[in-house]
Design a protein around this nucleic acid. Sequence first.
DNA 1: ATTAAATCGATAACAAAGTATCGATATAGA
DNA 2: TCTATATCGATACTTTGTTATCGATTTAAT
Lengths: 218, 218
Amino acid sequence: MRNQEKDYSGVSVQALWRLPYYLNYIKSLDEAKYSCISAPIIAKALNLNEVQVRKDLAAVSNSGGKPKTGYVAKELISDLEEFLGYNSVDEAILVGVGHLGKALLSYQGFENCGLNILMGFDKDEAIIGTNVCGKQILPLDKLKDLCWRMSVNVGIITVPAKEAQMICDMLVEAGIRAIWNFAPVHLHVPDYVLVQNENLAASLAVLSKNLTESLKEK
Amino acid sequence: MRNQEKDYSGVSVQALWRLPYYLNYIKSLDEAKYSCISAPIIAKALNLNEVQVRKDLAAVSNSGGKPKTGYVAKELISDLEEFLGYNSVDEAILVGVGHLGKALLSYQGFENCGLNILMGFDKDEAIIGTNVCGKQILPLDKLKDLCWRMSVNVGIITVPAKEAQMICDMLVEAGIRAIWNFAPVHLHVPDYVLVQNENLAASLAVLSKNLTESLKEK
DNA sequence: ATTAAATCGATAACAAAGTATCGATATAGA
DNA sequence: TCTATATCGATACTTTGTTATCGATTTAAT
């Protein structure tokens, strides 16, 4: 469910997943000590293959790396951020202000990644009109109009599984072009709408399966 | 960062990610109407290839499917649940009771997936001693002892990136065998410890990259 | 009872992703 | 200045995962 997207700009989907880790790692380094950083070092730090790292970076880096020294850390950071779209901000709205919804509304880190969650929507009268981290919670019937007016491109779904498809339809109706779906269901959308699934249950399944096998081994 | 695990029991990691979607979909069907379910129907519903579905199910199903009718829905459900380990419960603890931590502690759905989060840990005096959904929040210095005594296998990390490695080390020290890591960093662990990364920033990067490309196209 | 249609499972072809190798090149140290 | 070495980038190879094809089988309809 994760790998259905085509590869754009010569970067495979899997590579795309690795890029934020590169960015993160390079940013975490002491600038003075590591003005340059090489593929082998990154590979070792992140438990990856050296060639793989080099290939991934080749697709992203504008200036390329130099033999013996590697890539200029500062340039690589900005190339990665540029490539990942952290510089251009996407406006988003979130539907379903439960525990998870609130957590996402409150999370400050998204803004560094180019995502700005403008507001939340819910059907529960009790929380409509309240604030979460300065973000207003509005009723669902305001959704369509607001999305159009503010040209919101991204919708985040954090409602229960049963309601997800209905909300999804509303979002499509409202002109949303990309959906970040936290409900554990497959959503049906028109071709021009992207869906990125964040299925905790599936993730957990992978973890638990591996754990079982790992415990069996010993 | 998602595909580093080996494939166990003849199921690739990618296939493993699809299984919960199958389970979910089959469960959502009207039992009376669909006592049997075929690979082509599942494939169509989830936008997958028919052969792929059949292959995935072949690895999971004990009784197999019959020509013309497909698989017996009830059996397939229990085979999937068995395979995914939803029947055998893993005990878990969570470290970092912020917004996300609270959301995970509150989420009821994990118990159906074989995960039981026993309690939370945090360093913040203000929340130590409180409850989240009936789960106690304890100080970090109690962690090791409690994990040993209750033979907890799974640790969930929802602390900020900077503290993640330190918490990770504590968990390893406490005998944890699998870590579900929500911090956007690569964790260093001994060979026998599993790490499953849940990197929202990375996920967002993929979404935003695809969105940019998709908007460019038109 | 016989035939037609749908599905399964297996095998084979194909595509994508990851890894190893090799020559070229820039830097650090002798 | 010259040489040794680390790293890059490109190409080739290997592995893994996906998709197409084909015969076998079961059911439903004639």
